[in-house]
């Protein structure tokens, strides 16, 4: 099995689907001959031609609006938003249109499409090249929100998202694009949406996380192990619709939970996990659920390493719930 970076796995996923399904089109800013600013679409125009992989004018609203039209008319668009931070001009199209089309037309019109977008910090990108806006979308009925954390899942979840009958916001952890390598099967395969992955087993504490924070949790779990604390790391993979039973099972197994994400805390995704556990598993809990998150501030530049949760902060929270 070839070893690929997460970025190469995305590229491989796109090529695999495009070879199998001529209705799949890939477009966005700089995705054509340049292959995207991160090179996720490298070689696509070359292999599939400009009819199937092309640049658009600089308008996210236009990109997503056009994708919806294509999707309702028999194509499978995969639109790229260059940075998640630049998705907001398309917010109306995503939230008012793509998300609600099936519902408001009684299923006559649908938007089977994927919006791929790199998110998160770690590249010294400051306020506008670092955001984690998943909660805006996870708050929107009708959307699916998927975030891979390994090369294997990036390809499998991407193919599953493209094949899915509903609109999917597919957020790629840019911090892992080139730093994370892993084995990726050749050819087509899918990773089922709305399923969790136990990235590491452990009986003492459960850390729920996703995307780039999975490697941070694994690092903290490694350190906790040297101190005798066995930490389970659960990668949520699909934020919406969430595998709620899976979350509750994993929480009950240890009774001590840390929820970790890079996005700000207030109304962040961790609040949902925490509330779910409070509502349905409180009697199993040995300690209050602790959230480790970005601060409730915009994302800074020089001090980004202080903003983003790191193994220090996660380990501190693990020790806190363990010793509670």
């Amino acid at each position: 099995m070839p070893t690929l970076t997460l970025l190469q796995a995305v590229n491989d996923g796109l090529k695999t689907v495009m070879r199998n399904d001529p209705t799949v089109l890939v477009f966005g800013e700089d995705v054509g001959p340049k292959g995207g600013v991160f090179l996720a679409t490298e070689g696509l125009t070359e292999e599939f031609g400009v009819e199937r992989c092309f640049d658009t004018p600089l308008s996210e609203d236009g990109i997503v609006g056009a994708a919806i039209g294509m999707a309702m008319n028999g194509l499978r668009p995969v639109a790229e938003i260059q940075f998640q931070d630049f998705i907001y001009p398309a917010f109306d199209q995503i939230v008012s249109e793509a998300a609600k089309l099936r519902y408001r037309s009684g299923g006559q019109y649908t938007a089977p499409m994927v919006i791929r977008t790199p998110y998160g910090g770690g590249i010294r990108g400051g306020l506008y090249h670092s955001q984690s806006g998943e909660s805006y979308f996870a708050h929107t009925a009708g959307l699916k929100v998927v975030i891979p954390s390994t090369p294997h899942d990036a390809k499998g979840l991407l193919i599953a998202s493209i094949e899915d009958p509903d609109p999917v916001i597919f957020m790629e952890p840019k911090a892992l694009y080139r730093t994370l390598k892993g084995e990726v099967p050749e050819g087509s395969y899918t990773v089922e949406l709305s399923t969790l992955r136990e990235a590491r087993a452990g009986k003492d504490v459960t850390v729920f996380c996703y995307g780039a924070m999975v490697t941070v949790a694994e690092k903290a779990a490694e350190q906790a192990a040297t101190g005798g604390i066995e930490v389970a790391v659960v990668d949520l993979r699909t934020l919406l619709p969430l595998d709620e039973e899976g979350v509750l099972d994993a929480a009950k197994r240890t009774g001590r939970v840390v929820v970790l994400h890079e996005a700000p805390r207030f109304c962040g995704y961790g609040a949902e996990i925490s509330a779910l556990i409070a509502e349905h598993a409180i009697e199993y809990m040995e300690a209050p659920v602790v959230r480790v998150t970005g601060f409730d501030t915009p994302f800074p530049n020089t001090l980004e390493h202080n903003y983003m949760p790191d193994d220090r902060r996660v380990l501190d929270a693990i020790e806190h719930v363990y010793n509670f």
Binding site: G121, R124, H129, F295, D296, T297, R312, D316
Partner: peptide
């Protein structure tokens, strides 16, 4: 935010400062 700031200072005191990463800007 005051609480979050105090927690950040407190953690830095107990566990040391965060380490700057080496991520590169792509475009």
């Amino acid at each position: 935010l005051r609480k979050q700031g105090e927690a950040a200072f407190d953690l830095a005191k107990r566990k040391g400062d965060a380490v700057a990463g080496g991520g590169e800007f792509p475009l």
